[in-house]
Design a protein around this nucleic acid. Structure first.
Lengths: 116, 116
DNA sequence: TCATCATATTCCGATATCGGCATGCGTCAA
DNA sequence: TTGACGCATGCCGATATCGGAATATGATGA
């Protein structure tokens, strides 16, 4: 029993921001709190769709909710993004590296780099 | 067959690093190139398991491969992590905020908006 | 209380994902 | 060529995910 096909990926921040629409929500919330319907409207998704993504973001505490009358105002709580920033920062010295010993391969890399 | 239950999440970097074991692989590769079996061994996963994760990382170009005789040496190509670092960095101003006072929150927002 | 607006939840079908296992493919050495 | 090694791929079952539609819950005001 319990064959477990997947690790505990869910409900962690990396997973939450893996979804493009959820990232869009977070970006929008930088400009300030917003009710669900407004978010849905601005991002071109349905209300249930927005609610579901907000639920995920709430569960990993990237957003907080505040009841305001009939509405529920969602606001950013970006503290959870810090670990991600720091984790990727741990690779900072590698992403400009020259890979000198892999001679031919390096040239390709540098060319690709210029295209970006 | 065009029902599309999911956006094009796959094969982007955010998705690739959403998986804990893939992050572990990347961390290990900071220490240098490694063949598949060695990676699998050090991370306590099966060889096919390692190969599959490496495939995902290869597809988003976070790793590169180099044939070395019978072996295939996987190496880090961390450039793809830079966008993630920068995206999260866009929230840097928000993750030290005190959510106790809405006043300060709004002030910071105005400040941020002027800079962008 | 009742109607209404705002939001959350549930159910559904399609697909994606992950791990395990078996097998295929490529490379090297004898 | 053959066999052994290193690795990739294919298949499978279990589960997770996403979007859409319908519905349930909650708050407000008449």
């Amino acid at each position: 029993m319990m064959t477990m096909a997947r690790a505990a990926t869910t409900s962690d921040v990396f997973n939450a921001i893996a979804e493009p629409q959820r990232r869009e929500i977070l970006v929008l919330l930088r400009a300030g709190e917003r009710p669900v319907t407004e978010l849905a409207q601005e991002l071109g998704m349905t209300q249930p769709g927005a609610s579901k993504h907000l639920r995920v973001l709430r569960e990993v505490r990237l957003v907080r909710v505040r009841g305001a009358g009939k509405q529920r105002l969602y606001g950013l709580d970006a503290r959870g993004l810090r670990p991600v920033h720091e984790w990727t920062g741990g690779f900072e010295r590698f992403w400009n590296e020259s890979f000198d010993r892999l001679d031919t391969y390096v040239q390709d890399l540098k060319q690709t780099q210029q295209e970006e």
